[in-house]
């Protein structure tokens, strides 16, 4: 059954009729051509489809599209600034070599974004725990941790050695 929903998508108000069984990931990919959220598994185990809903990381493959009605959705495509300037996380992922095949990267960055919104200056342990739901087969995670640390240092003011 098609349901009309309205929500904020990457800062813009949008409305759409969507079938009630469609996942958030499929809606983003099929209806909005936002391909950043990837289906790595389709059942919430790999994190490649991570987007933010009201600033919290969710596996968009597990959430129904209708559940975002009235809420705010941020995808990797909405992370850069209005003139395309990269988010500090995107920048540090590039600079620190945290990207190899890149399939996990959008989900990885969105999970990291949620983590930093909640904890601007996480310890390494907090990063590793906070990112545990995102799988990467290429990098061994070290450079991703380094990139998240580097990005957090820009927003961190507690003086803690993160």
């Amino acid at each position: 059954m098609a349901v009309k929903i309205s929500f904020k998508l990457n800062g813009e108000d949008v409305s759409i009729n969507v079938d009630d069984h469609v996942t958030l990931m499929d809606m983003l990919r099929e209806e909005f051509d936002l391909f950043g959220a990837k289906e790595g598994c389709g059942y919430g185990e790999c994190g490649s489809c991570t987007v933010l809903v009201d600033d919290k990381a969710v596996n968009s493959c597990l959430m129904l599209a209708v559940a975002v009605n009235g809420r705010s959705v941020l995808t990797i495509e909405g992370l850069a600034g209005p003139r395309g300037e990269l988010d500090p996380l995107q920048k540090s992922f590039v600079e620190k070599g945290a990207v190899q095949c890149g399939f996990c990267t959008p989900g990885m960055i969105m999970s990291a974004k949620a983590l930093l919104l909640e904890k601007p200056c996480p310890t390494e342990e907090e990063i590793r725990k906070g990112m545990a739901g995102n799988l990467c087969r290429c990098t061994g995670y070290a450079k991703i941790v380094e990139a998240i640390k580097a990005a957090s240092e820009r927003g961190c003011s507690c003086g803690k050695d993160s």
């Binding site: 950043g36 959220a37 990797i76 495509e77 992370l79 590039v94 990207v99 890149g102 990267t105 959008p106």
Partner: peptide, 17 residues
């Protein structure tokens, strides 16, 4: 830095999917 990383961090890279 990897030349295609800029596209990859923005979700612009096209995989077969």
């Amino acid at each position: 830095p990897k030349l295609d990383a800029w596209d990859k961090v923005q979700g612009k890279t096209m995989y077969i999917h």
